[in-house]
């Protein structure tokens, strides 16, 4: 585990009008690790991701990237830092082929002409670097790919840009068993290649299969961020549904006893 986290959030607040969606959220993401972000519907996972990717501005709080304070005001800022998000609904164009999709919006050009050979080569290298063998031709239209292959293309697209942090929003939600295994393997490989990965998932099996750390959101608060090896399946479910589990998570009754757990930003929780 590296000393400096790649991304560190401190005290993030976010409200939409009168509704406070994120309260004093802290999150650390390390390179070479998969951090699973879990939480029930409405816990604020998506909002947190949108804050990180620059779609929503935050009301308060700090972003540290590689230990340096940064400001992420737009998706472009996030992209220039090397933060890429793979959305749940994939955002691929069916009528374009794999190479065209991977370079969409950031085409390589020589002069005003598209540089197809270079793009095709880079795409092939990226797929090879991720040991992706399921795709037979780079010039296949995306419409002819299976769900797992599409997810693979979407992830490869995110990796193509020397990204440092890849956020995956429920990448396995719509996939079958074999394809889920494929995608999870790919997620693991991303981290093994040194990238920081944030995986949003509802599926506890997936979370325990690939993640190094689990961060649990409960009603807009980060109730725990612990190593996957230090927590059980049942405890994560309790954190998601009740916001606390044994010594982890929110205090039962603030100030009730001395060794009570820390609220909110506990990357600690006594399990470090």
């Amino acid at each position: 585990m590296s000393a400096t986290p790649l991304l560190e959030l401190r005290g993030i607040d976010k409200s939409f009008g009168p509704v406070q969606v994120l309260r004093d959220v802290a999150l650390t993401v390390h390179p070479g690790e998969v951090t699973a972000l879990v939480g029930d519907n409405g816990a604020g996972k998506s909002t947190l991701v949108k804050c990180i990717s620059g779609i929503h501005p935050t009301d308060a709080g700090e972003f540290l990237f590689n230990g340096e304070p940064v400001h992420i005001g737009s998706p472009r800022d996030a992209a220039s830092l090397g933060i890429e998000v793979v959305y749940q609904d994939l955002a691929l164009c069916d009528n374009l082929d794999i190479v065209q999709n991977m370079f969409l919006g950031r085409e390589k050009r020589s002069g005003i002409v598209l540089d197809e050979p270079t793009m095709e080569q880079l795409a092939a290298e990226t797929l090879a670097g991720l040991s992706i063998r399921t795709v037979t031709s780079l010039r296949q239209h995306v419409s002819s790919l299976s769900g797992g292959q599409r997810q693979t293309v979407a992830i490869a697209k995110a990796v193509l840009w020397n990204s440092k942090l890849v956020i995956l929003d429920e990448p396995t939600a719509a996939l079958g068993v074999a394809q889920t295994a494929q995608v999870l393997e790919l997620v693991r490989r991303l981290a093994d290649n040194g990238l920081a990965v944030v995986l949003i998932s509802h599926n506890m099996n997936d979370v325990f299969a690939v993640s190094d750390r689990i961060a649990a959101l409960y009603l807009g608060q980060m109730v725990a961020q612990v190593k996957t090896t230090d927590i059980t399946h049942a405890q994560v479910v309790e954190l998601i549904t009740a916001g606390r589990s044994g010594g982890l998570g929110l205090a039962t009754d603030p100030g009730s006893n001395g060794d009570g757990p820390q609220p909110a930003d506990s990357t600690s929780g006594g399990v470090r």
């Binding site: 998706p75 472009r76 959305y87 609904d89 994939l90 955002a91 691929l92 164009c93 069916d94 009528n95 374009l96 065209q100 969409l104 919006g105 950031r106 085409e107 050009r109 005003i112 002409v113 598209l114």
Partner: peptide, 24 residues
């Protein structure tokens, strides 16, 4: 066929939301 503008026309025609997210 050969410019990124043309590529973007196909992208918007294929999936407008994907095109928007790609920064087009």
């Amino acid at each position: 066929q050969r410019t990124s503008y043309g590529r973007h026309i196909y992208a918007v025609g294929g999936n407008r939301e994907a095109a928007r997210r790609a920064g087009i």
